[in-house]
């Protein structure tokens, strides 16, 4: 399975480099490189400075969101948990908006150190706090109530949206412009420096994944059973929540709210290879990357030269899957 996903990722990456609003195509570029010809300035800019960073950012964001979904679902023992649905993304957005509107109030020294990172950091903290709150509200004695989780998610998202609204209301014109660009939710702003800034977070997260998969497999049996099977339950939960906050915060900071990747990808993979988290987490990273690159291709080609926000594309693909799971597994939501 993993091998096929790698092949598919390569294929979709090449396609993503090949298609776009500009005429420059990866094939003509490769052909020129092969023949030793010089690339035109346009080709160089389009390939190297626009499409490639965008492709890599898409990979990072897609992988992060899909693995976040799989981890949240493992943590809550529930296939319906998704950062977008349970309010984690809204918390991250509130963090990002706070940074854009209130960031200038920070002491100059802090601003100098965090410049470029401030929105991402704030989004991380927003996502982290909302995940922690959600876990506290929805989980008692290691058991999560689905209804409480979904309802708490709605409440958290509403609260975050209300505070975000207040902040937007008092934002200056320049800040409003920044907010508008940020909230359009697109990978168009991807640059090499941003990709490089995101890399260490993703690298750290990927090293933590194997530790998490053993713990999450244990937690599938319940927290007490996990402890009896040698899982450091508290450490697993802390790590899982930090992971989700980091990946969701990153995704929100660079691309705004992108929903449903975290629910579609793990669900499809569980159908194919079962619920064991050991293959699930790495495969989710690959399929998440594939899905987001594909969604990005759709978002920038269907109405070219304009762009659809990528969140619209993922929602159109993902919402029906969410409903399908809900209908197929009614027992989870107390309908059986």
């Amino acid at each position: 399975m993993t091998g096929w996903l790698v092949v598919a990722l390569l294929a979709v990456s090449i396609a993503s480099l090949a298609w776009g609003a500009s005429e420059a195509s990866v094939f003509t570029v490769l052909g020129k490189l092969w023949r030793g010809e010089e690339l035109s300035a346009v080709e160089r800019v389009v390939m190297v400075n626009i499409r490639m960073p965008r492709l890599f950012m898409g990979m990072l964001v897609g992988a992060g969101l899909a693995v976040s979904g799989a981890i949240l679902q493992g943590l809550f023992r529930n296939p319906l948990a998704d950062p977008g649905i349970v309010g984690v993304t809204a918390g991250g957005s509130l963090g990002a908006i706070s940074a854009i509107v209130l960031g200038s109030l920070l002491p100059a020294g802090v601003l100098a150190v965090t410049s470029g990172w401030l929105v991402a950091l704030a989004a991380f903290f927003g996502a982290w706090i909302s995940t922690l709150l959600l876990y506290r509200v929805a989980t008692r004695d290691g058991r999560t109530s689905v209804a409480t989780m979904l309802l708490a998610g709605i409440a958290l998202a509403a609260l975050a949206a209300a505070i975000s609204g207040l902040l937007v209301f008092r934002a200056s014109d320049a800040q409003l412009r920044d907010l508008t660009f940020w909230s359009m939710g697109s990978l168009a702003g991807a640059t090499w420096s941003r990709v490089l800034a995101a890399l260490p977070i993703v690298a750290l997260a990927l090293t933590a994944s194997p530790l998490l998969s053993h713990g999450l497999n244990g937690i599938a049996l319940g927290e007490a059973a996990a402890m009896h099977m040698g899982v450091e339950v508290q450490r697993t939960k802390t790590l899982a929540i930090l992971w989700v906050a980091a990946a969701t915060g990153l995704a929100v900071a660079v691309a705004g709210g992108i929903g449903f990747v975290g629910i579609v990808v793990p669900h499809l993979l569980r159908l194919a290879t079962g619920p064991d988290h050991t293959p699930l987490l790495p495969n989710a990273a690959l399929l998440g990357a594939i899905l987001l690159i594909a969604a990005d291709m759709i978002s920038r080609t269907v109405v070219a030269p304009a762009e659809l926000p990528i969140g619209i594309v993922t929602a159109v693909l993902g919402a029906p899957v969410f409903l399908w799971i809900l209908l197929r597994r009614r027992g989870l939501v107390g309908l059986e």
């Binding site: 059973a225 402890m227 009896h228 040698g230």
Partner: peptide, 20 residues
């Protein structure tokens, strides 16, 4: 806990699993 898991196993009364 890791060492304990090699020394003893525990069967709870009933276990529900969220995933198939």
């Amino acid at each position: 806990v890791g060492e304990l898991a090699g020394l003893r196993a525990v069967l709870p009364q009933a276990v529900r699993m969220a995933f198939p």
